[in-house]
Every structure is written in C-alpha cells, then in structure tokens.
Amino acid sequence: MGFPRATGEVARQTVLLLMQNRLLWVVGTAQLALPALSYLLGGAIGDRHAGRHDYAVTTWTLFVFVLVPWTTLYCGVQAVHADIEDRTFQYLFLRPVSRAALLLGKLIAVAALSTVLFCFGAVAWFLGFAARSTLWPEGVEFELVAIYAQAIAMAATAYAAIAVLFAARLRRPLVWGACFIVGLQVFVGNLPAKARIRYLTITDPVRRFLLDRLNPDRQLAQDLWHWEHEFKPDLIGQPVLNLAILTAVATALALWFYTRSEYDSRERE
C-alpha cells in the first residue's frame, strides 16, 4: 500500500472514529444555535459598531481563540494518544504501512474535521449578523467568512500538529496542551510586537494574517491585539510563513518521535 493511499485510509478511518465522539456532536449541534445568538447579539450591540467589527472580534474570540485550540487539541490527543494509552496502537503498527503514514493520516483527519466543524460554525455565526442589515451600511461583507475560514483552517492545522506532537511524545498530552494554550496562546501570543517570543505561538501569526486581510481600522486592530497599542501594517510580517514553519517543525518532531518510539505495549495491571 503506497504512502498517500495509506495516509488517506488512516485519515478516513480516523475521521469516522472521531465522529463517534459525543463531544464533537455536542459542539456541532450547539453551533446550530449560533445564528440566533449572533442575531440577538447584533441587536444588543445596536449601532455602536459596524457588523464587520462585531463579527471580526467575536469570531476571533469564540473560534480562533477558544473553540479551535481546545477542540483540535482534544481531537488530536484522542486520535494519537488514546491508541498509545490503551495499547491499540499495536493493531496499527502491525500493518504494512509506515508509522509516518499513520501519524500524518491522523493529523490530516484532525485538522480537516476541526476546520470543517468550525468553518460551519463561523458561517452560522455570520448569518445572524448578516440578517441585520442595519449593521452593514455598505452592504454585507461575505468575504469576512472566507477570511475567517482561512484563519480557522490555518489555526486548526497548526493546533493539530502541536496536538499530535504532544500525543506522540508526552505521557499527559492534554495537560501539556492546556499549558501550551493558556501559557503560550493566551499570554505570550498577545504580547506587543516587540516581544519576539510571539513567533512560538499560533495565536500571533493567525492574528497577523487576519489583520493583513481585514484591513482593520484603528478600533478593530486595537480590539484584536489589545497589548499592541500602536498597530502598524509593517508589523504584519509573514504570518503564513511563520505559521507554516511552526506547523512543519511540530509535524517533523511528531513524526520523529512516533516512528522511533518503542511504546509500551504491555497490558496495564
């Protein structure tokens, strides 16, 4: 079985396995209520902000900052570490496919599932705002959804890479993942531009990507990057490249550990 076919088969099966997880169904079903919620929110905000501002800030907070990191981390750990923890990895490692194909298939599955789930959510969230024409004096900006869909896809892929790295290497990947999200994404990722350590985060390049594509006014830039008081376009840099490097390094490390580790295959007492 060739590498691409094996990767695809593992990805397909991982998606099917993950879709049996109740948490994903709860999140997916809850998103059906998002149009109503955003419609109500749009009414509550009134004419203080334009619709693009409200949608941009709330989608950033709800999806890119909260739902995508935590859900992707959870799914990545479930896809990789659950096998290692309960020893079922043996059944997979016995097959004539490379471990790299197994891990990449799982990573792709997690990234794809998270992307689809939250792009659907971002669209649902947009619908409520779009239904209030008073929020869009210059017409509804449907391209906002496309921009956020790209941001969600980038973030989901990067978080999936981090999740499988932690799952392949660490004994308690969810704990380490929580530290990664809270420590790096929430605190370090929000530091002002002069703090170069931001490059180690996913939050920072995704936000710079959004700032680049949204062409924000001063208020929106301030709301998306609280700690950077004087946002200037030249602070954007190359967010896609930064995130691609982070994702590639995390994936390479995950592959290294996953393909070389002798995981404990004994039944626990």
């Binding site: 396995l17 004539p96 490379s98």
Partner: peptide, 18 residues
C-alpha cells in the same frame, strides 16, 4: 519491515480493541 509485517499476523494478549 513492511514486507515482514505484511507476512505476519499477531494476536496479542491484550484485551483492548476499538
């Protein structure tokens, strides 16, 4: 090796399955 794994069937003493 992949060839060896293709030729092998293993029933582990492990009560864990999907």
């Amino acid at each position: 090796s992949a060839t060896a794994r293709a030729a092998l069937g293993f029933c582990p003493d492990l009560d864990r399955l999907y």
